Amino acid sequence: MRIERLGQDKIRIFLTFDDLSERGIQKEDMWQEIPKVHDLFTEMMDQAYNEVGFDATGPLAVEVFALPAQGMVVIVTRGKYDHHHFGVGSPYEDELPEEVYEMEVTLEQSDTILYSFDDFEVLIEAAHVLRHMIDEAGRLYKYNGKWVLRLEPDELDEGRIPALIAVLAEFGEATSVTPAMLDEYGDVIMADRAIDVICSHFKRQD
């Protein structure tokens, strides 16, 4: 579990599939109101307070993004009640949660594959290994000082995706950034055919 502070009232939490399986949670469980998911959220908020000083009291907006190869990204924003639903005179007035965490959860799923690389030389090595698996795919970004390779599944041979991810995991690191954040905050270095472009312009180290 990795926690980053995005602002005074917002944090991002990256959960790997190992984080989920260690707690007996399947990816599909995140869509359900079950005790072990609630326990996981409580654990995340405790860790967020201890690591980055994020106080999770009050209403929270929770966005969960499921990524195919990386795990899950959970973005938590501290906010205010929507008094149309909760508040004086509301039909829900007596149903206000008594717990510390009051959540409004949004769930999204993305099939985009995203891996980051600290060193461009390592990315060159990975590209040469991947070249025989990928014909004309890949977009390369620079984001937070790292090189981020983005692959869309419709550009790939579905049968090769597990092997492709295995190579990416060997050379790079699954990243918690979402495609939307990359588009907004990242710098596009190679807009398309990134693997082919890298291999054409950069040789492998001997």
Rank of each mutant, 00 (worst) to 15 (best):
I134F: 00
L20W: 07
F117S: 06
K80L: 13
V167H: 08
G87N: 02
S176H: 09
S176C: 09
E173L: 02
Y92I: 05
L140H: 10
A163I: 13
E136I: 02
V76N: 05
T42N: 12
E43R: 10
P35G: 02
R150G: 11
I13S: 02
F14V: 05
A61P: 00
E104N: 10
I11V: 12
Q205W: 11
E136N: 10
L140N: 10
Y92G: 04
I25E: 05
V129N: 01
E4W: 13
H128N: 03
V62P: 01
I134M: 00
D206I: 13
M44E: 03
V188K: 06
A163V: 10
P179D: 08
E99Y: 14
L182C: 03
I11N: 00
L20S: 06
D119E: 13
P68G: 03
F117Q: 04
L107K: 14
L164G: 03
G71F: 03
V88C: 09
D39V: 10
C199Q: 09
G87R: 03
D9I: 08
Y92F: 15
G24Q: 07
A56M: 03
K27A: 14
L114N: 05
E173I: 04
W31T: 06
T175P: 04
G172E: 00
G24N: 06
L60K: 02
D135K: 09
A191R: 09
A191V: 05
D55G: 07
M133R: 08
D18R: 09
L107I: 14
M72P: 05
V76M: 08
K142Y: 14
E104D: 14
D39F: 12
N50W: 11
Q26G: 12
P35E: 01
V76D: 01
T77K: 15
Y185I: 12
A66Q: 14
D18F: 08
I75P: 04
E95R: 15
P68A: 07
E43H: 12
G24Y: 08
G159S: 06
T77M: 12
L114S: 01
D19T: 00
A166W: 09
D82N: 12
T16A: 10
L123F: 05
I189R: 09
Q32L: 13
I11F: 03
V62T: 05
